[in-house]
Design a binder for these strands. Structure first.
Lengths: 336, 336
DNA sequence: CTGTTAGCGCCTTCAC
DNA sequence: GTGAAGGCGCTAACAG
């Protein structure tokens, strides 16, 4: 015969009775209010400990209209970039006793809408969102209608100047291009552009502008596809042309690693004959051979920044919106 | 002047009044009860739509003692293996209207305890846990005391036969070893063992047993370290010995990729002179050059299975505990 | 099939 | 400093 378990979870009234105080006093102890005498506090805390009391935030939320939860809705949580971003969010939250719901829109605006709705029903205090490809202003309008604080990460729904954390892709690509030119490369190709979200556009535009500024010949962009694919045939074609590229900047590290493998199968020396630069600096970038030169976009930092910005927004709903831009850094290894 | 916004969120009573029914009826509509007439349901739903009503699950939870939330506490969420597992959990949850809190224990039992406590305060219905290295039975005892349903994934706290989803590492390693022996390799080394959690033990034991069964010479294990490091010096030493290994089975893909890079720097032909086999089949395994032969441990499936098992446990708290073992599969590519 | 009543566990206000 | 009362939004139990 065990002791009483979940038959009746101990609540604040039980604690109060046992400690010989009122519910209100026990509640104050719970929230570390200075209004309660040290001795009383001590006694109540001991009772809580002894009875195995668990603070029922659900009940508190109902009263306070604040849940200390946020939502994190990403377009693809199994992507290592996003999982590191998630870790950053976590870290910032851990400090502030916030707990985080996670959802994966899998790039589907409909699924994303469902998930936001669901989180909304759970009364999240705020939302960090990387909008699925194809999301439009209605998402933002919805959030506004509900008065739900949110910050966008990496991608931005066009035409809404709101809280936003992103990476200065153009700056990273500038640095990478400069590095390539210094090494004597001039025919540089961009590989793997696919989606038309703001982060993808920023990369391609950054590439084109840098190429123009440096007076480099313009080569066709090698298209990308779903799930970090790219058009291998197009790459082969351009490699076989009379003026083949000498270097590539890739949409991300995953594509860069695939490109490296492809080049080496074609017996093209990566780093010597041909330079490859990736983007993100995933852990697999440093482990590859040759080690991948890449533009570190610091997902952990992006996540932390987004979580902190959201906290600010939640505490000051009317404050001016803020755009945070994380500056990436070129990590030179062996591939370029 | 905007219309009324969050000044007073519309609640079920508002809906009921507007639709000319009672709160109870509106509540039944909300939960798709068959007890309500089709016409009434229709009318109420339209009102909900029109008023922008949002179901307040927090309030419902208070009443029902069920929140439709679960917790997912992992030892390292930025590890691609775990992020894919998370996607699997998500997918299973999405179907059942469950929403998922995520937490990263970062291999710290103390942090893990804090996070579980926090989730508990939010009244999660159940927990999926990959225990941090160093967790002991107290974690389980705690969960039991609270009557919180849980399932462990991948790692198991010793001596507690409870709901558990894992991978049959030994079977995977058997298959890999057989593959190597068929290819004529006999001196096989295991690289990168580090932690002493059950999943790490299972791999090493599987390796040793397979080696014994196949009558292979026994070589020293190359130790691993935090963050997927391994002892490079020890590998060099054994490579320089009079009877160097001809193949390696690595603790996971991340280590395998690093080992491949190291070998190629030493001008050892991976796939030809020396075979390398990884574990997990991360996306970077197929993108590497040479493409990594690896034991696919199917994290997505593990996640889905864990989520479903947890659902079963939640709906039948007293049912016998269940151990699910996912059988991995050797994916033969170029490195072995 | 629909309405009434009585809380779920907590926090806030206001007395004392 | 502490106690008593009321209510957050919802649902369970029952009455009609």
């Amino acid at each position: 015969m065990k002791t009483d378990k979940q038959d009746a979870p101990v609540n604040l009234l039980d604690v109060a009775r046992e400690a010989g105080v009122s519910r209100a006093t026990a509640s104050l102890v719970l929230r570390n209010s200075p209004l309660v005498a040290a001795a009383t506090r001590e006694r109540v805390q001991q009772v809580m400990q002894r009875l195995g009391y668990i603070y029922n935030r659900g009940a508190a939320n109902l009263r306070q209209n604040r849940t200390n939860t946020i939502g994190l809705v990403l377009s693809n949580i199994s992507n290592p970039f996003f999982s590191t971003l998630t870790a950053g969010v976590e870290e910032a939250n851990d400090a502030s006793e916030i707990v985080c719901f996670i959802a994966d829109s899998a790039e589907s605006p409909e699924r994303q809408a469902r998930q936001i709705q669901r989180l909304r029903e759970h009364n999240i205090d705020g939302l960090i969102l990387c909008p699925a490809v194809g999301s439009d202003e209605r998402v933002i309008a919805d959030l506004d209608r509900l008065g739900l604080p949110f910050v966008q990460v990496l991608r931005e729904i066009p035409g809404c100047a709101r809280d936003y954390v992103t990476v200065d892709y153009a700056a990273g690509i500038d640095e990478a291009m400069a590095h390539l030119v210094t090494a004597g490369r001039r025919r540089i190709v961009f590989i793997g552009n696919f989606s038309t979200h703001s982060a993808a556009r920023a990369r391609l535009e950054g590439f084109n502008r840098a190429a123009a500024r440096l007076g480099l010949p313009s080569l066709p962009v090698i298209a990308g596809g779903r799930d970090n694919r790219y058009d291998e045939a197009a790459l082969d074609e351009i490699l076989a042309s009379s003026e083949p590229p000498e270097a590539a900047i890739c949409y991300n590290d995953i594509i860069a690693l695939a490109v490296m493998g492809h080049l080496r199968r074609r017996a093209i020396g990566v780093g010597s004959d041909f330079s490859v630069i990736g983007m993100d600096d995933l852990s697999s970038a440093s482990a590859s051979y040759p080690a991948l030169t890449t533009i570190a976009t610091m997902p952990h930092r992006v996540g932390e920044a987004a979580a902190r910005l959201l906290q600010k927004r939640i505490s000051r709903p009317a404050k001016r919106s803020e755009q945070l831009v994380i500056t990436p850094r070129l990590i030179v290894r062996e591939s370029a």
